[in-house]
Design a protein around this nucleic acid. Structure first.
Lengths: 196, 196
DNA sequence: GGTGCAAACGGACCGCGGTCCGCTTCTATT
DNA sequence: AATAGAAGCGGACCGCGGTCCGTTTGCACC
């Protein structure tokens, strides 16, 4: 009678070898990324480094995009933690405007640092639902706190759009605009939107 | 004495067969794109459709990205013409604010319509210098006309960022936000930035 | 320990973008 | 018309992401 106990939140439970491989793959991928740069990491290389077959990599992570997203998740989670419960001005405790500016600055730097990884984790152009919506929620919340009226969700998007990797790499990379100036311009944008 | 005449603007002049092939390839690519959608157009297919070898495609257009950019160029050029010399409110003759709003609306629709093509023409994330800078120049010009003060180039970027394909496809596609609402939100953003 | 079977594994295989290089064609010059 | 050599051509070939399927492994129950 192979009956699984009818626990409410039935999630299939990963087999032990599967879990071991997942971890090995993440470690391998992380190492290769650090070593050779995102763009020259191949799926075969990751598989070999982890000592598993290529099929296993795709079974675990669906696609290259998925694997990179998993690697990215580490730092992204840390940042989200800092936003939710870290020290001010990014975390709670500071004035909403201060928090919003801190949000922008840290997000900007992060997107610039992890640009290649983010792009690799997000080839389709649509950032993973979770990642995007977390930031969106936060900005909406802060805008509300600031007493902004209007279409808050779309205003939030408008504020975050200039922080997208595509834009930042155009500015910092192609046009050689210093980061401080980009930050300052974003601050200005925020003030105009909030006060306007 | 194989001396080329020392004309000032010496550009090598394309050989006749090369020119013929370029045209054939563009036509073939255009047809295949219209027929099957950008994403399922392969370089081999384009080569075959145009009746040339694969190598020729890459010789002419460098890469898939380059070919798609060339295809895209047709409609893009038309739009640029309308901005520079078309009828108001998009073209000259209307008030700057009116022109700016018209700019945003047409750009928004265009980016939504040609989203797949634009993404294919621009895999790297950095839109071709020419395309981006034309729009940027125009917005900067209008902002100046409107008497906006501050970091005009970066304010212009901030206004155009929410019109990027990545953002629009997230909103219209994943979040099912109606285009009219996106337009309205952009108008609001513009007013805040201009008045703020 | 044995047994049944779902889950996981791995590597051969495929299609596509992109390169390479020996062969062909155009054109300038006589 | 003949000629030379640069420009163009084409298709075999490569590496990578992704799939498929026959084989192996872990686990629950006996």
């Amino acid at each position: 009678m192979p009956l699984d106990l009818p626990l409410a939140d039935e999630q299939p439970v990963e087999r032990s070898d599967a879990a071991r491989n997942r971890e090995a793959l993440l470690v391998a991928a992380q190492r290769l990324v650090d070593q050779c740069g995102v763009d020259s990491v191949t799926m075969d290389a990751v598989a070999q480094e982890a000592g598993v077959g290529k099929g296993t990599v795709f079974r675990r992570f669906e696609s290259r995009e998925g694997l990179m997203a998993a690697v990215l998740d580490r730092s992204e989670t840390a940042w989200q933690g800092a936003v939710i419960g870290g020290p001010p001005p990014l975390g709670p405790g500071a004035e909403p405007m201060e928090r919003l500016l801190a949000f922008g600055h840290t997000r900007l730097r992060l997107n610039l640092t992890h640009g290649a990884l983010i792009r690799a984790a997000d080839r389709s152009g649509a950032r993973s639902f979770a990642a995007v919506s977390f930031a969106a929620m936060h900005v909406r919340y802060l805008l509300t706190q600031l007493g902004v009226t209007g279409d808050i969700p779309l205003l939030a998007t408008a504020l975050m759009a200039p922080l997208e990797v595509v834009i930042l790499e155009q500015q910092a990379g192609r046009e050689h605009i210093p980061v401080e100036r980009i930050e300052a311009a974003w601050d200005d944008l925020v003030r105009r939107v909030v006060n306007g």
